[in-house]
Computed example of a mutant assay.
Amino acid sequence: MKRLIGILLPIFLATQLWADNKEIIMFGVRKTPKVTTKSIEEAFTLAGYKVEGNRDMNGPFKKQFGDTVFRIYNLMTVYYPDATKALVRRHEEAGVFAPFSVVIYQKKGDDTIYAGVLSAFAKAKIMGLPFDHKVLQALEERNVATLLKAMPGAKKVVFDYTPKPLTKEPLTRFSLESDPEEWEDFKEEVEMIIEDGLKPIGFVMANFLDYNYFLKEAGIDTYLFYDTYSLCKLKVIYTVSKIRPEAGVFAPCTMAIYQKKGEDRMKMVYPNVYNWMATLALEDEQSLKELEKAQADILELLEQTAE
């Protein structure tokens, strides 16, 4: 009996430990013709979300790298208007989740389809907000309800690892002096440098959003402009997803570029790859190498805007 307890106790403790992963919310259900990437997108649309894209990454995986471990791998970028406006109005850096990502995948040989998002806890950690932030908590409840409606009978995934502590800054911040009277020309010049520099370093712009348009529609006239760029490097998500398919909750990463009225600084902010490393508890050398390179390349590109 003592031996049985000795065997079961580590298993119990490990299960409790794994169940404590508070950073990724993932559901899985048996794949049927009624549960598809399109039906999941439709569920989010019906729930009031704006779906900016629902991209099949599996085709590009096969085309660029010659193989894939997935039958389905989609990255869907969405935002919920009321929540996003409330966040950006009070927290200028919240545009890094305007939009945010929903990953949808099914591995070869597996009859389960999965879909998931970053939790309110993880988003709060990245943005430096209270973990019980009411807007983020309400958005998480809506995310969960929408996923469960899209995937009837789905069960929450318990991961076999726990996130590591984040040892570096979750966000990279960059700013440039910008004359409030001539911001339009300067904005165009800076964004052109960024857009032209993406392809040579292996990035694509998955989505662009003039978010200030929606802020003004809501009577929020705080910014001269507020743009968001959703950026993705195929080699990064291809490499990391083989180890951690749920990595798609981070991809594409959204960079916010904005300037407040009355201020003479244009600001740029985006989530660092260190969030991936910590939340996904990555130890795979190739994954870490690709993430570090992506971080260095984007930082170098932003520094070129100051030259």
Rank of each mutant, 00 (worst) to 15 (best):
D264F: 07
V157T: 08
A247L: 10
L9T: 14
V190L: 10
E189D: 12
F159G: 09
A43D: 14
L302Y: 12
N54W: 01
L302V: 05
D132N: 08
I40G: 01
T167P: 08
V273Q: 13
L46N: 14
P252D: 09
Y161Q: 04
K242F: 11
L234S: 02
K267E: 06
L301P: 00
K149G: 05
D196A: 09
T172E: 15
E42L: 08
M205K: 09
G116F: 02
A218I: 12
E303G: 08
T222L: 03
K155N: 11
K50P: 07
F100R: 00
V69A: 13
G262W: 12
K233Q: 14
K235V: 15
K168H: 13
V88F: 06
E195V: 14
K149W: 08
D160T: 11
K261E: 04
D132P: 06
L166K: 06
T32Y: 03
E23N: 10
P60E: 01
V78S: 02
P163S: 00
A251G: 07
L17K: 02
V29S: 03
D20H: 15
L8P: 12
Q64R: 14
V103A: 10
E300A: 11
E181S: 12
I24F: 08
L291C: 08
Q64H: 13
E188K: 15
E189L: 13
G202N: 05
L8I: 15
I11N: 07
M277L: 14
L209A: 10
I24C: 05
K293T: 11
I25C: 10
A122G: 00
A124W: 09
G28H: 13
E290P: 02
N212V: 10
L171I: 14
S287M: 10
G248F: 05
G28P: 11
F121R: 02
L13P: 00
G128Q: 06
I220N: 04
G219H: 01
G109F: 04
L176M: 12
E285C: 02
I40D: 04
L8K: 12
T77K: 09
Y274S: 11
T32M: 03
V240W: 05
K233N: 14
Y80T: 00
I113E: 02
A251S: 10
G6K: 13
G202Y: 04
F159C: 07
F61L: 10
F100M: 03
E217L: 10
Y114M: 05
E92H: 03
T162A: 11
Y49L: 01
C232T: 07
L282M: 02
A43I: 15
A296R: 14
K293D: 07
T239W: 05
F44N: 03
L118A: 09
Y73V: 00
T279Y: 15
M255G: 03
E191W: 02
L4W: 06
E246N: 01
R142W: 09
D56Y: 00
